[in-house]
């Protein structure tokens, strides 16, 4: 589903070392991967590279068998419309209601000829999606009228409403209380079971991330320093990974 080969991305400040210096990985269809790493290690940037929002200076990115670097703008749009993306800041459109926000990917897919739903069916799907995240009664509200957790759930509903084969979640629980965090992970799990989508998730909540993901990836200093089963992370040969997972003060980090 996703194949990265030798990704190199330079820092905006030329004095700084590259953000990524030769990252290669493969994520198979239906797999659930957690991506972690210390702050400012480029986790969100890697997600944006996979989605084709940022181009690396070197290396190739393949999504669903298409090299994003060689894709025409129309092909790129077609690939992007098959990705559900939950942004760290939710990225809800301020000028639209909750319902319009959630309906937006469906209407866009309709415009691109990838969705055969009519307006009634779109509204029904949006209602279903909002019911799924427990916000059916908030459809007419503006994003500014919602709490942080509610906004996150709307963003989640928008990411999954078109049932895309690839789901990318960037910090889906950042800044949320433990109960809301548990609810969000429960929703992510339900969605994954329902759609069998390939899922890539970035989170600083390492324990929750490991519980949710079959496979863990960790980036550190521009390289992938861990790529393996979630359960084996504690016993990694890398002292960086062990320290990060255990949250210890002493160590190379």
């Amino acid at each position: 589903m996703i194949a990265l080969d030798g990704i190199r991305k330079l820092h905006l400040d030329p004095v700084q070392p590259p953000v990524f210096d030769g990252i290669s990985l493969r994520i198979a269809e239906g797999e659930t991967c957690g991506l972690c790493g210390p702050g400012a290690s480029g986790k969100s940037l890697l997600l944006k590279i996979i989605c084709g929002l940022v181009r690396p200076e070197h290396g190739t990115v393949e999504v669903a068998g298409r090299d994003l670097g060689l894709a025409s703008p129309d092909e790129l749009r077609s690939i992007q419309s098959r990705i559900g993306y939950l942004f760290q800041n939710n990225a809800l459109f301020d000028s639209m209601t909750v319902q319009e926000n959630v309906a937006f990917p469906l209407r866009q897919r309709l415009r691109l000829g990838q969705e055969a739903l009519d307006e009634q069916q779109i509204l029904a799907r949006v209602s279903e999606s909002l019911r799924g995240v427990g916000l059916a009664t908030h459809a007419a509200k503006m994003p500014s009228q919602l709490s942080g957790g509610q906004r996150k759930r709307v963003a989640l509903a928008r990411a999954v409403v078109a049932r895309p084969p690839l789901l990318i979640y960037d910090e889906p629980t950042a800044g949320l209380d433990p109960v809301t965090t548990a609810k969000i992970y429960d929703l992510l799990g339900t969605e994954q079971k329902l759609t069998k989508s390939t899922t890539l998730i970035v989170s600083s909540d390492i324990d929750a991330l490991r519980r949710f993901s079959d496979r863990m990836l960790m980036v550190y200093r521009g390289r992938l320093c861990y790529d393996g089963p979630s359960a084996d992370m504690d016993e990694s040969a890398s002292p960086v990974v062990r320290q990060f997972v255990r949250g210890e003060l002493e160590g190379p980090l």
């Binding site: 419309s81 809800l92 301020d94 866009q108």
Partner: peptide, 18 residues
């Protein structure tokens, strides 16, 4: 500017909207 910092512009691009 607010749309850029709250990733709404990236959000549009991720939804295949220029």
């Amino acid at each position: 500017g607010s749309m850029v910092v709250t990733e709404q512009v990236d959000g549009l691009r991720a939804l295949a909207i220029e």
